[in-house]
Design a protein around this nucleic acid. Sequence first.
DNA 1: TTGTAAGCGTTATCAT
DNA 2: ATGATAACGCTTACAA
Lengths: 336, 336
Amino acid sequence: VKRRPTIIDVARDAGVSKSTVSRVISNNGAGVRDETRLQVERAIEKLGYAHNAVASSLRTDRTNIILLAIPDITNPFWPDVARGVQDVMDREGYAVVFANNDWQGQRERMFLWMARRNRFDGIVINPIAVSEAELRTTAIPAVLIGSREGYANFDMVGSQSYQATRLALDHLAQLGHRRIGFIYGQGVSRLGYSRLNGYLDFLQEIGLSKRDEYIVQMPFDRAGGFQGMQQLLSLPQPPTAVFAANDILAMGALQAAHQAGVPVPQELSIIGMDDIFAASTTTPPLTTVIKPKYQIGQHAAYFLLDRIHKRGPAEPRRKFLACQLQVRGSTGPSPA
Amino acid sequence: VKRRPTIIDVARDAGVSKSTVSRVISNNGAGVRDETRLQVERAIEKLGYAHNAVASSLRTDRTNIILLAIPDITNPFWPDVARGVQDVMDREGYAVVFANNDWQGQRERMFLWMARRNRFDGIVINPIAVSEAELRTTAIPAVLIGSREGYANFDMVGSQSYQATRLALDHLAQLGHRRIGFIYGQGVSRLGYSRLNGYLDFLQEIGLSKRDEYIVQMPFDRAGGFQGMQQLLSLPQPPTAVFAANDILAMGALQAAHQAGVPVPQELSIIGMDDIFAASTTTPPLTTVIKPKYQIGQHAAYFLLDRIHKRGPAEPRRKFLACQLQVRGSTGPSPA
DNA sequence: TTGTAAGCGTTATCAT
DNA sequence: ATGATAACGCTTACAA
């Protein structure tokens, strides 16, 4: 029976005390004579010693693990954000693990509890069901991705989605569209509301009346976009342009138009949001609004680091990055 | 200054010993009088006590966390597999966290070290760079997803990809195709080799000579498929059918065909592999080979649980699930 | 059924 | 620069 070696075994083999071994390992050798350090390193090598982070965490109360909680790993929006988070966190020595909840609130809670029980050092989350109070009782520094009402005490990083909505709708209006549909996702959250508001405000501003049948809410995935568009196309007077709350929905919508034989953009314009990679490869390529995904991830990481190290202002911070219109082939002049 | 409460605080408040508190928490009350248990539970509630899994793990040497290491979170193949793993692991009380390495071997290693240092209980991995030896020194029960040469000591779960390749090529051959191209991914690994072999064997069997210019290796993503197809189309005598090693590549290829104005399937047939959701929504919808993704995940979890609990056979186990042809619109009779 | 006490493998404090 | 020693918060024999 061979136990895993501990620093005590290493200390014995190197002929020093375990404190010295610990110094070599965690302060990477600061305050240790070079010769001694080498001795210890040789012993570590020889015994195949592996640092026990669990014991270390118990003592230091830090794990160097960050949880990134997202609803839908299938949406290519997230990997870009994740890269931003990881690139920053990596440099600071944190590992970022993903927690995908598949739009299930229960799963989201489960992961939050796991993070708490295992004393993860921070959380970056796009919340779907968890309340601010729950997030607070987690007692782990957290920053939110996206814009949410009712999380006044947390840092938040997202994009200017109201502005982004306007960008999209303005584009359609300038092309002469007057019958503009809107497809957005349901989820348990308020996600999409700022876009819905942007949509409603805009209609009013340019003097169009709201038509309830032009607003459809569907599951936040490609199939949802597909269904949503089918529903819009089945109307006696379908819209000539459709704004989808994200590219995934828009791609589903585009697919539905294809299947129904409606030419895009000649008879129907479709615009999305996010600018995921796939948006550029549809037929026709999707007009959309570019969201600074990677930067969102980076800023979330910066905020989180400040929280973890208790530096920076105590009040919650907000950062909403600007978006940009990306015109491609799925939008064109209104047929009317 | 308010410390986080420990079982000692709870014990004091409830007027019992900390062993009793521990029993209430971890054996969920077995061997504790109901009355005492209630007392303890009240104290837990009152103090807002949260179990410290780090301390617990140090003692028990178990964390109840499983690492799922994958190369490319962007590929919708993985979420389905992940769901299979999670659904099984959930029931056993394990949390599954994702480690996405973006095809970077260094990242993969980093996560493996994290899993080791933090004493994760198991690993499900689709390895890209890490060797069997490295995986072994991790000293954590692991099972591999996919079929790989040179990991003789590990359980492996995947699909019958050689058979799957034949399914695809047979379909093309029956449609009369004689000039069949092959696009596969690079990655650092041998991934795709069984498919390459299947391809070469098949050509030989039906009496076609291998044409090197028909075999292209590209990055394992949509852009790779796009480029690969461009390359094939630029040949003096391009293939009439292309087999792509997965749907992502196939979708990129389809896109390239569209852009080049080559009608699919009239002048060019494209077949993929995996049957990710998006494959059914391209124009035309993609003919592909269905892989039992969810089941692969489930079986990997079963194997892993057996390893963790040291039950089941000691020898490495293999499970390769059968695939199935899914004919859609992207394949048709050879134009020749 | 409950309590006592000995670890688990570190890090941090204080001497030397 | 190094060593002794006391935590960190929990689980688990063993005893009562």
